[in-house]
């Protein structure tokens, strides 16, 4: 599995396409509804899934562990929403921590971790 993280609009999808031969059709983008196409070659918007998890009381790390065999060769994309100041509002704080924990777990399992900054790739792992 290859993990791409970075801020909003930093070129994460473009990098998935240029570097991991992902096509637009291969990308499933998570919304805040808990739906995940685990068979997709590339799953994006993990931060949205994390927000759904917080609202539904689901542990995002456990959710991913349950489907491990399906994403272990995928490209996963998440916004690094966990770098800002501590947000006001309990839900936003829980969301930020859930997304941070999920990315930490996925990083530990990833073959490569790339962070995008202004369109430039920084290999973290």
């Amino acid at each position: 599995m290859d993990l791409i993280i970075g801020g909003a609009y930093q070129g994460k999808r473009a990098y998935a396409k240029s570097h991991f031969s992902v096509r637009e059709d291969d990308i499933f983008t998570c919304r805040e509804d808990g739906k995940v196409d685990w068979s997709a070659r590339c799953i994006a918007g993990l931060e949205n899934l994390a927000l759904w998890c917080v609202r539904e009381g689901v542990d995002p790390v456990e959710l991913f562990k349950k489907h491990e065999s399906q994403w272990e060769n995928s490209v996963l994309i998440s916004e690094d929403i966990f770098c800002g100041v501590v947000p006001l509002g309990a839900e936003n704080r829980a969301w930020r921590e859930a997304a941070g924990r999920l990315c930490g777990y996925l990083s530990s399992r990833a073959d490569s971790v790339t962070r995008m900054f202004c369109g430039l790739a920084q290999r973290l792992k």
């Binding site: 801020g7 609009y9 930093q10 929403i81 966990f82 770098c83 800002g84 947000p87 969301w95």
Partner: peptide, 8 residues
């Protein structure tokens, strides 16, 4: 300014 990484 890098303003792209917060939970809001």
């Amino acid at each position: 300014d890098y303003i792209y990484s917060d939970a809001i």
